[in-house]
Amino acid sequence: MAKVISIQEQDYNLADEVALLEQDNDCDGAVVTFTGRVRNKNEGLKVSGLYLEHYPGMTEKSLEKIIAIANQRWSLGRVRVIHRIGQLAIGEQIVFVGVTSMHRKDAFAAAEFIMDYLKVQAPFWKKELTEQGEKWLDAKTSDNNKAKQWQSSE
């Protein structure tokens, strides 16, 4: 399995990322990608943007571990994770997870697993800019429950 992790302020180009996953990779028939974007509303409040902070060093280590677990669990070709930091406006891309494998089942499952664990383990924090001012987001119980499901399911 080949993996690349990037934590960056700048945007990424989805088509370029897919091209890199597919280039010289004729053995993998499945490419699954996920893009997370900044929504215009959260919990009923209009959102004007996000600020994303992270813990340099630990973030990369944490993502490496998540990808290593996914690779033990499924048969994977390439894994690409991009997470943006800093100031982000409505509609901007925040996170990208791309996974290739021979067949779709492994690629779908691993992409979802990586996102679910990133949500609860990777040290990123979002501050929301709303019409009522700035607010650090609280972690969601639903995200924790979603990640826990992988402990019992195949």
């Binding site: 992270h54 997470h83 925040i94 949500k119 609860v120 990777a122 040290p123 979002k126 987001l137 972690a139």
Partner: peptide, 10 residues
């Protein structure tokens, strides 16, 4: 040693 609130990335 780092202390921080529950994470909210993604």
């Amino acid at each position: 040693v780092a202390f921080f609130p529950p994470v909210t990335g993604g």
